[in-house]
Design a protein around this nucleic acid. Sequence first.
DNA 1: GTCTATACCTGGATAGAC
DNA 2: GTCTATCCAGGTATAGAC
Lengths: 197, 197
Amino acid sequence: MAASATREKIVTSADRLFYERGFEVTSFADVAEVVGISRGNFYYHFRTKDEILDAVIERRIKQRHDMLEGWVDSDQSPKQCIASFIGILLMNNKKIRSFGCPVGTLFSELAKLNHPGGPGARALFDLFRIWLRHRFEAMGRGADADALAMHILARSQGAATLANAYPDEPFLETEVAQMLAWLDAVAGQQKQTDKED
Amino acid sequence: MAASATREKIVTSADRLFYERGFEVTSFADVAEVVGISRGNFYYHFRTKDEILDAVIERRIKQRHDMLEGWVDSDQSPKQCIASFIGILLMNNKKIRSFGCPVGTLFSELAKLNHPGGPGARALFDLFRIWLRHRFEAMGRGADADALAMHILARSQGAATLANAYPDEPFLETEVAQMLAWLDAVAGQQKQTDKED
DNA sequence: GTCTATACCTGGATAGAC
DNA sequence: GTCTATCCAGGTATAGAC
């Protein structure tokens, strides 16, 4: 269990390569070269390629989880939290333009492969979905909180895909502004409804 | 140039397999098996795997082009045309739930590979983008027609990705309804602006 | 145009020395 | 824990008979 330095480096490098080149196309030799170890040594730390994938997904989940909970813990309002989520697109805009969304692209690759890691990749979506749902609930959107969560998740995914296809255009910034405006409208709607009912 | 029956079958089968399993992971043996020919025969029709990819992309572009122009030619209004575009998501909802969007997933796979076919895959996006832009222009949206086209393209992509991640939920239908409502709003906005200015 | 046979390479995975 | 050597499967691609 004690995470050895080498094991750590393997997971970190594999994470990057799976993102930048894709899971299937990344070979042990590629990872070994980046880490600076021999192919053979690999199998001391991981018995199969799938085990590395599991470790990478686990790592990604932990990272995202910590980031999301960090926002909640730093006394941001639910609306601010959701705005921070939308802001991820700008925070990572360079990588997204080059390689798409790490969550969405990994998921669709594994889905096509019918790969056993698929459910793990979906867990990444679940993490964001449930977290977003809780924020919308905290905003007083009990009834349609999950639908709103799914909607903003989809908008992010679409924005990332198109930003990847057209990396040299200011599209991502425009789209983020619209998503924030949508969030404002959702928050305002709530007040409206309070008055009207 | 005369498209032989075998060549035709190879492209059709490769198209399906590239969509359902992914480009990289699909081997000549896979395609040959589906078509019912030997691997060797393959090379009479295509010299490399990339040549098949080119043919598949060309085929997809032609199919989509014909579909889009068919709508224009059948006297649909610009707004109806855009609604038909949005409706693709429902028309193909079974396949989208299983394998995602054929345009988006192929693009992101090739983007990661830095594959020479990447630009071809982007051409598929361009086809939709430009067609949509023309429809919005015909609706009187000269100034922001392209931005609207990009927006609805992104919404479709996001909806497809999430539908793939959560195939058992009625999410796709909900999202399509919202996109149609958005289209109504865009059309109405135009009239509003006419009055206000 | 289609087949079989085969060359060649790369990838995942194992064995065993150090 | 790390290495080298090696096995084996599967992939692309070629040669040449039919």
